[in-house]
């Protein structure tokens, strides 16, 4: 796909939420999406939570998510609130840790459910006071 289009998916104003610095975990020198796992009931949740939404427990451990997963379903959106630059593609990606993450997808021809995709992360400074990260998915 054309580079300009890829840039629009990632960089259009307010395209995708900026994660806080703490929403990213490090595996060696690689940034990963940071989920949490409940040490009592094994519920996994992204973004990471300090209280388990299944059992209300507080023993939550950091769970760095894998950088590749399987696309469950996606849609290219043509009508959206004015803040969004359309069209854009969004979808759900299933990661090996048992966590389904919703996000923007770089659209490529022939994309279909069950495709392999990778997680992309980049530093973002939408909020100059609290720089963080932005994530999206691209074909693996």
């Amino acid at each position: 796909m054309p580079d300009s289009n890829a840039a629009a998916v990632r960089m259009a104003p307010r395209t995708g939420r900026q994660l806080r610095e703490g929403d990213v975990a490090w595996v060696g020198s690689e940034p990963r999406l940071r989920a949490a796992r409940c040490l009592d009931c094994d519920t996994r949740v992204f973004p990471a939570a300090t209280v388990c939404p299944s059992c209300n427990g507080e023993r939550m451990a950091e769970l760095p998510l894998s950088d590749t997963g399987t696309l469950y379903a996606f849609s290219t959106v043509h009508i959206a609130p004015a803040m969004w630059q359309t069209p854009y593609t969004i979808g759900y990606v299933d990661l090996p840790e048992g966590v389904r993450v919703f996000g923007k997808i770089e659209p490529v021809a022939g994309l279909a459910p069950d495709a392999r995709v990778r997680v992309c992360l980049e530093q973002a400074d939408d909020d100059a006071q609290a720089p963080g990260w932005r994530y999206w998915f691209a074909a693996a």
Partner: peptide, 16 residues
């Protein structure tokens, strides 16, 4: 905050 709108939620159900 990542672009979900109601038609897209149903669209993904439809696709699947």
């Amino acid at each position: 905050a990542n672009g979900m709108v109601m038609p897209a939620l149903y669209a993904m159900r439809a696709q699947r």
